[in-house]
Computed example of a mutant assay.
Amino acid sequence: MTYWVDRTASLKPGQPVTHALVIGVSAYDHLPGGPLTFGLKSLSSTAAGAHRFAVWLRDHYHNPRAPLATIRLLLSPTAEGEPADREHVRNAVLGWQEDNSRNSSGTSFLYAAGHGVMLSHEDSLVLLQDFAKDRMVLDYSLDIGSVYHGMAGDQFPQSQVYFVDACRLRPEVFARFANLGTGVGLPSPFAAADRRSSSVYFSAAPGTLAYGRRDGEGTIFSAALLDCLGGLAVEAAGAGEFHVTGASLLRTLQEQVNSRARQYNAEQYVTGGGTGLSHVVHYFEKPPAFPYAIWLDPDHARPFVRAEIWDGDRNGLLADGRFEPNPASWDLPAGLHSLDVIVKPGDNRFRTRSGVALLVDGRQARPKVVSVE
Rank of each mutant, 00 (worst) to 15 (best):
residue 245 T to Q: 11
residue 245 T to A: 06
residue 246 G to T: 09
residue 246 G to K: 05
residue 248 S to L: 03
residue 250 L to P: 03
residue 250 L to Y: 15
residue 250 L to K: 11
residue 252 T to L: 04
residue 253 L to P: 01
residue 254 Q to F: 00
residue 254 Q to P: 00
residue 254 Q to V: 03
residue 255 E to Y: 04
residue 255 E to L: 02
residue 255 E to I: 09
residue 256 Q to N: 00
residue 256 Q to E: 13
residue 257 V to Q: 02
residue 258 N to R: 12
residue 258 N to E: 12
residue 258 N to T: 15
residue 258 N to F: 10
residue 259 S to E: 11
residue 260 R to M: 07
residue 260 R to N: 09
residue 261 A to I: 07
residue 264 Y to P: 02
residue 265 N to A: 13
residue 266 A to N: 10
residue 269 Y to P: 07
residue 269 Y to A: 08
residue 270 V to L: 03
residue 272 G to R: 07
residue 273 G to R: 03
residue 273 G to Y: 07
residue 274 G to S: 05
residue 275 T to C: 01
residue 277 L to Y: 12
residue 277 L to Q: 11
residue 277 L to P: 01
residue 278 S to M: 13
residue 279 H to F: 03
residue 279 H to Q: 07
residue 281 V to P: 06
residue 283 Y to R: 15
residue 283 Y to F: 15
residue 285 E to L: 15
residue 285 E to F: 08
residue 286 K to C: 08
residue 287 P to L: 04
residue 288 P to K: 04
residue 289 A to M: 14
residue 291 P to N: 05
residue 291 P to Q: 08
residue 291 P to F: 03
residue 291 P to G: 01
residue 292 Y to N: 14
residue 292 Y to L: 13
residue 292 Y to F: 15
residue 292 Y to I: 14
residue 293 A to I: 04
residue 293 A to P: 05
residue 294 I to P: 02
residue 297 D to S: 01
residue 297 D to G: 00
residue 298 P to V: 08
residue 299 D to S: 05
residue 299 D to E: 05
residue 300 H to V: 09
residue 300 H to S: 09
residue 300 H to W: 12
residue 301 A to G: 02
residue 305 V to C: 08
residue 306 R to I: 07
residue 307 A to E: 00
residue 307 A to F: 00
residue 308 E to V: 05
residue 309 I to L: 15
residue 309 I to W: 12
residue 312 G to S: 11
residue 312 G to Y: 12
residue 312 G to F: 14
residue 312 G to N: 14
residue 314 R to D: 09
residue 314 R to N: 03
residue 314 R to L: 04
